[in-house]
Computed example of a mutant assay.
Amino acid sequence: MDYLNLGRSGLRVSRACLGTMNFGTEYGLAASDEAEAGRIIDAFLDAGGNFIDTADLYHRGETEEIVGRALKGRREWVVLATKGAMPVGPEGRGLSRRHLTRALDASLRRLGTDYIDLYQCHQWDPVTPIEETMATLDGFVRAGKVRYLGCSNFTATQLVEAQWAAAGAGGTPFVSLQPQYSLIQRVIEAEILPACERHGVGTIVYGVLGGGVLTGRYRHGEDPDPDSRMGRLLGHSLPGANRWAHSLLNDRNLGIAEELAKVAADLDAGPAAGSAAVALAWVAQRPGVTSVLLGPRSVEQLRENLAAFELNLPEEAVARLDEISRQDVGPMDGSSFHLVPR
C-alpha cells in the first residue's frame, strides 16, 4: 500500500481509505453487520491501509460505535476521520459552534477515543458564518480533540472562503476535501481540483463506482435485480433513494459502463469485478487524487477493490476511458454531491 501526505500537512494516509457508510443496520439496505464490519476492518489494516472514514450521520451513530469497538486496542495506528454537520437526532444540524461542539463530543464518545485525526464538515452551512465555523474548528484543534481539519461536499468557492476565514483569524485551515469523482461524475476537474491544488488541500474521493453502475451489473432495458444496490434503493422508502437510483441509471451512465466493460475485457480483467477494478484504478491514477474511498460490504468486495491499486492502466486504456466519460465540466452545484444516505 502506498501512502501520501494529505494536502499541505504531515499526515500520511494510505491511497485506499476505508469508507464505513455500509456498516450498520439502521437503514435496512443489506449493509454489513458488526461482525462483518470487524472482519473488513481487520482485512483492510492487514493489507496495509491506515485510513478509516466515518460520520455521525451513518446509521444514526451506530456506524461510529461499530468502528470504535473494532479499533479498540489499536486506535493509535489508525488515521481516523469522521464528519459532523448532519442531524443525528432532534438537536439540529449545521456548522454552528453549538451544533459542532455537541456533534464532536458525541462522536468522540461513540468512537471511544479522546481525539479525531481528521474532523470534517459534512456539508456547507448557508446559515452559519464561515468565520464562526472555522474559529470553532480551530478551538477543537487547540483543545487537542482534533488533529487536522477537512470538509466534504464543498464547492470550490466555499472551500476558498473557508481557507480565507482560517487565514484571516490565524487559525487552522482545511487539509482535505471529500468530493464525488468517477467516470460518470467528473465535474470536480473544472474548479474543485485546481482550487485544492492552489490551497494545499488533499482530496479523498468518494462514489468512485457510481453507486455500483460502473461494476457492470446493470444493463440498458433491464430492471435491476431486486437484491442489487440499485434494486433495493428503487424499492426503499428512504427519502431520495428512489430518485437517486433513477438519476444514476440513465442512458449516458449505462453507456459508459458498457464501454468500461470492454476496456476491462481487453485487459483480461473480466467483465464484472474487472470493470470495478479498472474504474477504481482510473480514479486512483488521476492527478490531484490523494486517497480513494472504498465502501465494501464484505471482505471479498474489499479485496476486489484493493486489487485496483496494483493495476497500472496502460496509456491507451486511460485515453479510451477519458474519451468515453468526457463531459461538460462546468461550474458544479454542491447539491449534486449528496449520495444517499450521505
Rank of each mutant, 00 (worst) to 15 (best):
L238D: 04
P173W: 09
R110M: 14
R97E: 15
G112T: 14
G24F: 05
A162N: 03
A81Q: 14
Q185S: 05
R198D: 14
T157F: 09
E323C: 08
E132V: 04
T215G: 01
E62G: 13
R93Q: 15
G295E: 03
T128M: 12
W77K: 06
L149G: 03
S335H: 09
I130N: 01
G235V: 00
A257I: 11
L234T: 03
R217N: 01
W282C: 04
L29T: 03
H220G: 02
G210P: 00
H236R: 03
D328H: 14
G216A: 05
C121V: 09
G73P: 02
L80K: 08
Q301I: 09
R320D: 09
G235D: 09
L137N: 12
F140T: 08
M134A: 02
D223N: 06
R97W: 15
L177E: 15
D223E: 06
D322P: 01
W244P: 00
W124P: 02
R252G: 04
S335G: 11
R15N: 11
H122K: 09
N253D: 05
A195R: 01
G171D: 14
K262M: 11
R217Y: 03
S176I: 11
V278T: 08
L233F: 04
T25S: 15
H199M: 11
D46G: 01
Y58D: 08
P287H: 06
R286D: 04
G211L: 04
V292Y: 10
A276G: 10
Q163A: 06
S335V: 06
L149P: 00
D117R: 15
K262Y: 12
L149C: 06
H220R: 08
G73T: 04
T101S: 15
R75A: 07
W282I: 02
L248G: 00
H236C: 08
G48S: 07
Y27A: 07
H199L: 11
E34A: 13
E304F: 04
G84I: 12
P224W: 07
L234S: 02
P341W: 13
G216Q: 04
Q301K: 06
G330E: 14
A30Y: 08
R186E: 10
A43S: 05
L177Q: 14
A269W: 00
P296H: 03
G150W: 02
M332D: 13
A308Y: 06
G207F: 06
I256K: 02
A265W: 05
P331M: 12
R219S: 05
A273N: 11
G210A: 04
A85E: 10
L254D: 01
T54W: 11
M134R: 03
L260I: 09
I256S: 02
L214P: 00
A319D: 12
N22S: 12
A195L: 07
G235E: 10
A269Y: 02
P314V: 10
R74M: 08
E258K: 13
I188F: 05
C151R: 06
G170K: 11
M86N: 09
D117V: 14
A156W: 01
E323P: 02
A169E: 14
G170I: 08
L321T: 04
W164H: 02
R74P: 01
D333T: 06
L214R: 03
D268L: 06
L294K: 03
R93H: 13
V289F: 15
R110Q: 15
D225N: 04
L6P: 02
M86S: 13
A156D: 12
T63K: 13
V78W: 05
S335C: 08
A257D: 06
G235R: 11
L111I: 15
I204T: 12
A156N: 05
V146M: 13
